[in-house]
């Protein structure tokens, strides 16, 4: 059979089992997450018909495909700074945004050193998800606490209660892990 120009000379080795997810699925999921988060934080900006609004979306989506640490850092900073600038205080979706940003960071970091084509096993994904949930178990109460502090401002009792609850929660998690 005639080989087209640009086609690799050899034949790829392919896995011979189930339970593997192509990396392209993961890259698409990462790009989608990034675009969704970007859509949330840049939705508040005035849409004046300019195409420049698509540029940050392109950057965050490209970071899922191109293996560049700089692009990943730029994307994360764009999202964080945009949140700080655009989102109103006491925005109730803060825990969701925190979870999304963390997921995006983990996915970026996973894809960064890997070749473009490949597979990941479901067991490895499960391991990643467990680690993600372990950190979210601490991050989510902090986000809720931040919302409470932001709502009640100078209410000292709420702040003290929140900090105490969070500290005991963290302590319980740490003690549980060390056992």
């Amino acid at each position: 059979m005639m080989r087209r120009s640009g086609q690799p000379a050899g034949v790829r080795a392919v896995p011979d089992r189930r339970g593997l997810v192509p990396l392209w699925t993961l890259r698409c999921a990462t790009a989608l997450t990034a675009v969704l988060l970007g859509g949330v934080v840049w939705d508040g900006m005035a849409w004046d018909g300019s195409a420049w609004i698509a540029l940050p979306l392109l950057v965050v989506a490209a970071a899922a495909i191109l293996p560049s640490t700089g692009l990943v850092a730029l994307s994360l900073l764009l999202l964080v700074v945009s949140y700080a600038v655009n989102m109103p205080p006491g925005w109730p979706w803060l825990p969701v945004f925190v979870a999304g940003l963390h997921a995006l960071f983990v996915l970026y970091l996973l894809l960064l050193p890997l070749p473009r084509h490949g597979w990941i096993s479901l067991l490895a994904l499960r391991e990643l998800a467990l680690s993600y949930l372990r950190i979210q178990a601490l991050a989510q109460p902090i986000a809720v606490l931040a919302l409470l502090i932001d709502d009640d401002g100078s209410n000292l009792a709420v702040v003290i209660m929140g900090v105490a609850a969070l500290s005991s929660w963290s302590l319980w998690l740490v003690v549980r892990r060390t056992r």
Binding site: G10, P15, R17, P115
Partner: peptide, 27 residues
């Protein structure tokens, strides 16, 4: 993370749990 490259092909990635096995077919 395993990086595999068949002759004449770009590299492929395979991410597994550390105790996992995975069969492969190679030409």
């Amino acid at each position: 993370g395993v990086t595999l490259a068949a002759p004449g092909c770009p590299a492929d990635a395979l991410v597994l749990r550390a105790d996992e096995t995975c069969p492969f077919l190679a030409d």
